[in-house]
């Protein structure tokens, strides 16, 4: 039984499920973030307040953290196993044709992880009282951060990398879950492309607008 639950295929299955859950969460997060574009801080702050206090969201939050943890742990674990599968490498770089960004998931994923840590430091830790700041006014926290050019640039780079990650992630998840075939493959690829552009662009627009106006 253990063999089945912890086979490489099962691990990938869990990773894909976790990844898809995270993919669902991103648009929700984006929706709230887009309220930052309003000059009135109220809608954003109340949305943030709702997210922080509504009991059902609390449950989802725990689930979210667990998902992130599983996705990352399994990702790293599989990656190590994969590196060990080829102890002696090639002298000439492998030029086999591959799907875009598919070979760099550990690196794009890793970058997103670093951003996540910074993000937690900036917002979540305020909520927990670990870092100084007003948990009832994330609107101003966000505006302050985005007005730092270095932060905005880092933010953009991370979302660019996230886009790369997402493009392969979405189609790969379908493939791993066994939901791809000759007919659906191009459809899934198109959806992946739209998603991988729309979501990061949506996030990236915010500091841009803040800068310009």
């Amino acid at each position: 039984m253990n063999k089945i639950l912890f086979s490489a295929v099962s691990k990938k299955f869990v990773m894909a499920l976790a990844g898809l859950f995270l993919l669902l969460f991103l648009p929700v997060h984006l929706g709230i973030n887009l309220m930052l574009l309003k000059s009135d801080p109220e809608p954003f702050n109340s949305a943030a307040h709702f997210m922080a206090t509504f009991p059902l969201i609390k449950v989802v939050e725990v689930l979210l953290f667990l998902t992130i943890l599983i996705h990352i742990t399994y990702g790293i674990f599989l990656q190590i196993q994969n590196w060990l599968s080829r102890p002696v490498g090639y002298k000439v770089r492998n030029k086999s044709e591959t799907g875009a960004f598919s070979r760099f998931m550990i690196w794009t994923g890793g970058s997103v992880l670093i951003f996540l840590v910074i993000h937690f430091f900036n917002f979540y830790f305020i909520k927990l009282g670990l870092v100084e700041g007003d948990p009832e006014n994330f609107y101003s926290v966000a505006w302050q951060l985005f007005s730092i050019p270095g932060y905005a640039i880092l933010y953009w780079i991370c979302f660019l990398l996230l886009g790369f990650h997402l493009y392969h992630a979405l189609q790969s998840a379908f493939q791993t879950l066994g939901l791809s075939n000759e007919f659906w493959k191009p459809v899934i690829r198109a959806i992946s492309l739209i998603y991988a552009i729309a979501v990061p662009v949506g996030f990236a627009i915010i500091p841009l607008v803040i800068w310009l106006f």
Partner: peptide, 17 residues
């Protein structure tokens, strides 16, 4: 699948190589 893992092959990253 069990034998494949046992032999030490890596997992699939769906790269398509």
């Amino acid at each position: 699948i069990a034998e494949m893992d046992k032999q030490g092959f890596g997992s699939c990253s769906n790269t398509g190589a």
